[in-house]
Design a protein around this nucleic acid. Structure first.
Lengths: 177, 177
DNA sequence: TCAATCCCGACAAGATCCGTCGGGATTACG
DNA sequence: CGTAATCCCGACGGATCTTGTCGGGATTGA
């Protein structure tokens, strides 16, 4: 598991591992939604991620009211509301900060620097359009879209199950990564 | 002009100054299109950017066949074709590399790492959608859209020079965060 | 010739990323 | 009550990237 240290962002507009791991964490919580708290140790094992690092991400998600924590033995984290009510934009903002392809196009007004150029800056239009394209996409996708359901498969992935009840394949076989 | 060194990317999905400066450079070249080569010294002065740094960016743009250079005295750079034929996507790719919000969603297949997870990775869908939203936007905007024409001004950009960065008139668009 | 300009590789300060580490607080369970 | 499990939190550090600077070489117009 030791430090990967091969840097993550090889291209433009890259999310960091915070975003990647955090989203994977949320997907795991989505799968477990309704089953009580899940411990980070369990999820770290399932996703093969360093648990101490996940703790930092979980705290950020908790501070954003996306998950709730239960302390003590048998504690853990669970979603604060159903996956369908959690847009991916909220998750990624909690993990990575406001979406801002350029400083002068941040979602957070206080991050705007003293860009005395904005008035005559036609380039600003570009950054705003990119930002809006991203946020629109991120607002339209919810966590439910990424959580594989036992009964409702992502469109295109067949897998209809007429006889509800037990599902023979999914439960708890830790995706051997 | 000395080193700014206050870091640039304060939010998620941020371009670096390479992208910012490079786009500004291209806009300047767009304004001068048809007037022969423009020297970097001139543009650096206009945009208040360090000329040695612009040189690096210019070389990247030249290698991508977006500009052509003329060496020697009275030399400089000029666009290789009219601004309307230069999509912003090409510019930013030349400056910042392939658009890849996540390593497993790069435009360049060879950048895809040994992600043995991709097959069962529902999260990948998210990164691909973000990438497509960005590239679609960037493909639709050309340099001509950012070059202020002398006769056709961008409407809606009423000049304002109060200077302190806060503007009561700017419509604040759906920042629900 | 001379100056302007592109061309190019090397270098470096500082910031961020990606975790690790160690402990403290809280709670379930026997 | 004691212990183990679990969240909570701040500090730390190596690797890497960013953001330029610097110095010189090559090419060309006047």
């Amino acid at each position: 598991m030791s430090q990967r240290q091969t840097f993550h962002g090889t291209g433009a507009l890259a999310f960091s591992t915070k975003g990647e791991y955090g989203v994977r964490l949320m997907v795991q919580l989505g799968r477990r939604y309704g089953s009580g708290p899940a411990s980070l140790a369990e999820i770290a094992a399932d996703e093969d991620l360093p648990r101490p690092y996940l703790e930092q991400l979980a705290i950020a998600l908790r501070d954003a009211d996306l998950v709730v924590s239960t302390r003590g033995a048998r504690g853990g984290y669970e979603l604060s509301r159903p996956p369908v009510e959690i847009p991916m934009a909220d998750i990624l903002r909690a993990l990575e900060g406001p979406i801002a392809p350029m400083v002068c196009a941040s979602e957070e007004p206080e991050h705007l620097p003293g860009c005395d150029r904005t008035s005559r800056c036609t380039v600003n239009l570009l950054w705003l359009r990119i930002r809006d394209a991203i946020t629109d996409t991120l607002d339209a996708i919810t966590l439910a879209d990424l959580v594989p359901s036992r009964t409702i498969a992502l469109e295109g992935l067949a897998g209809r199950t007429s006889g509800n009840g037990h599902d023979p394949n999914t439960p708890r076989e830790a995706v051997t990564a």
